[in-house]
Design a protein around this nucleic acid. Structure first.
Lengths: 258, 258
DNA sequence: CGCTATATTGACTTTGCTCAACCCAGGTGG
DNA sequence: CCACCTGGGTTGAGCAAAGTCAATATAGCG
């Protein structure tokens, strides 16, 4: 059984429902942005999000490449990522999961994970079983459409990362990553006054962009020196959104936020 | 309305059903690899694949970024690709569509395409309307699962391309592209004696990998000089599959071919 | 046969990598 | 409360991979 670079994986039950409830609300609201749901559909989603809460320490795998995916995760609090490693230790971060994000509603169709999912920060997730999932979607056909939308947006983000890796310079690519994350966090209400959390280390960013960590350090400085952003203490401040968008050639259409 | 780099887009009806029929069979067989279908499900899929055949010249867009996706395409013959362009003309090819491939069964949920789809060679496709699609999936629940599988595999390929762009050297990445395509073509019976069609130009490969065309030229030579492959006249010959796999660190698990 | 698209090659430049030293902040235990 | 430790982050010098640009060659196609 493949194991992640930290060699352990753990999920714990947890109690404090306060933040979880917040995130469940964000999740439902995000889906509503796309497809207005019936009140009972809304309630059903909300309940599902709170049914089986688990927490997980930073750097642990939620699930590792090669394992059989048995449940779906809904991120309630904290950040996670998909990643894939080559034998020699090179790691590519494939995507980020932010609060309110659902990890592939239908993966359980496959026998083995072709990538891993890890917590980037201490994490709280809801576990959802395929069974519960199918009960929900049978009862609430409009939810299916909303989930398809989530899924299509996830695919679009994945493609945009490839555009960054393939075509954008490291400066443009980093600007794009910050911009995209900023917009996604706005959607779930985690941005305020041009600021948002941004808990990735420079090594994480390096592995997401396909560059080296020292280079991220220099590139971040450049973004700061040109007055666009400040990234300090895991907190991102965007001074000039338009400048950042222009530099990154960021066009939010692919996020399909209506 | 955005227009592609060739400035035109056209779809024509066509008659000669011979090859189309072949490809429809491949498509059905590919889905069967994953989920055995009921005989009438098989027939329904097959009919759908032949109902509204269209042809399209090389380099034309099937659909362009910004347009409203109204139908689904099934590739019957020839190759197509997804791509995305930046304002300054940089182009990233995001994925390839080979014969028997279906372009996102559920895109029509979205209002606007966030990328374009173009023919790389003269192309024959089947048009399928959302309506027809839903009728089929309502009548044949097992087909839904097979389509989900197709969709999950497509996502996995997309992620693997990001691994290539982010972590692999250009030599490894090119080897990986050739290897992946070779395997995918095998699945639909288009490989024979270590040979398969490979109609991409060096510029296409460059835009898929995120490198320059002269660099592809040199890299292809290197792959040839080390006795791994020969690419000549749009035909790929693989001399040493294992060597190619090793070089590319290609692990076919992500294709989920059972 | 000649036109256009594609591929090859070379000289030079640039971007980002490597490796190693150093710095800083926050957390822990004495 | 302070000393230390550790996990990030910064910096510098030299290097390698891939880009740029342009000239030339080749191959299909009409």
């Amino acid at each position: 059984m493949p194991i992640n670079n930290f060699g352990y994986r753990r999920l714990f039950r947890f109690a404090g429902y306060r933040e979880a409830e917040m995130a469940a609300i964000h999740f439902v609201r995000k889906l509503e942005v796309f497809a207005p749901l019936a009140p009972d559909g809304e309630q059903a989603l909300h309940d599902l999000a709170l049914k089986r809460p688990r927490s997980c320490p930073a750097h642990a795998d939620l699930i590792s490449e090669g394992e059989d995916p048995k449940t779906v995760y809904l991120v309630l609090e904290g950040w996670a990522c998909r990643y894939k490693m080559l034998e020699d230790g090179r790691r590519q971060i494939l995507s980020l999961f932010l609060p309110g994000d659902l990890c592939d509603p239908y993966v359980y169709i496959l026998k083995r994970m072709d990538h891993s999912i890890a917590a980037l920060t201490p994490l709280k997730v809801a576990l959802i079983t395929p069974r519960e999932f199918e009960e929900l979607t049978d009862a609430q056909p409009r939810v299916v459409r909303a989930l398809w939308w989530e899924s299509l947006v996830t695919g679009a983000i994945q493609r945009e990362w490839l555009v960054s890796a393939g075509q954008r310079s490291s400066l443009e690519a980093l600007a794009h990553l910050l911009c995209e994350t900023y917009f996604r966090l706005q959607l779930v209400g985690l941005e305020k006054d041009g600021q948002c959390p941004f808990p990735l280390t420079q090594s994480d960013m390096a592995d997401a962009l396909g560059v080296t960590q020292p280079h991220v350090s220099r590139t971040l400085q450049e973004l700061h020196d040109t007055g666009l952003v400040l990234l300090k203490r895991r907190q991102l401040t965007v001074y000039d959104v338009d400048g950042l968008r222009r530099l990154a050639s960021f066009n939010p259409d692919y996020l399909h936020h209506r």
